[in-house]
Amino acid sequence: MSRIKTVFASLRQQRKKALIPFITAGDPDQTMTVPLMHELVKAGADIIELGVPFSDPMADGPTIQRSSERALKHHVGLKDVLVMVAEFRKSDPITPVVLMGYANPVESMGQEIFAAKAKESGVDGVLTVDYPPEECGEWVKHLKHHGLDAIFLLSPTTPQSRIERVAQMAQGYVYYVSLKGVTGSSHLDLNEVADKLSMLRSHISIPIGVGFGIRDGEMAKAVAELADAVVVGSRIIEEIEISSKSQLMENVIRLVSGLRTAIDDVVVKH
């Protein structure tokens, strides 16, 4: 069983929801990423989404754009990200790591070579923002061949026919982006999320994570009432951005622990 499946199965037994923090690899610099990943796990992360820096992050808001720019200043590319995951795996064989990024660094390395290297480094799943299902038949084949989960996005505007298509290809979990716009936007409409999720569940059997616009414990809890997993990105990146290097770990841990407590407040029915 894949690490992602194992985590969701174990959470179900404990009647808990998953917390998935997102950080950009190499932000604020390359030495901080692996220690930060370990601290995220201690603070209660169930899965880590690790952003691969890209020069043109079209689907991201200003916060994640800036984190990508900070990482690129240190020339952190896809190869370095794989090295970081391998380093993380040396002392954490359990926590799943999902790479999240854009198509071009993968295209540049070669889809098949990437899939093989990612598996070898201990990556569990890959979400490539600008590979929609129509364009990634080969891509998903390579991921599956190497035992990696292909994670897909679903949005409020995804029609039913595409949801069915994604349901056939997706593995691990699907990531429902709860609002229109780019990452880091606000104004999450919980009623809309609730309606959409119940519709999604009639097509999708794997867990559904919800992200975009989750800024505090209260919101995280509200989303955890509805979804299987809560994804928090921009809020964590903000904390990294405003913290001095000596305070950074402590501040991020405080934030993520707070989210964990809030999510664990949810009573999960079977």
């Binding site: 079209m58 689907a59 929609p132 996005l153 949005s155 505007t157 995804t158 029609p159 982006v177």
Partner: peptide, 12 residues
């Protein structure tokens, strides 16, 4: 060519 965008733009 093709369509290589995030899911959020597909419907548009």
């Amino acid at each position: 060519g093709g369509i290589f965008v995030a899911e959020t733009l597909i419907a548009a």
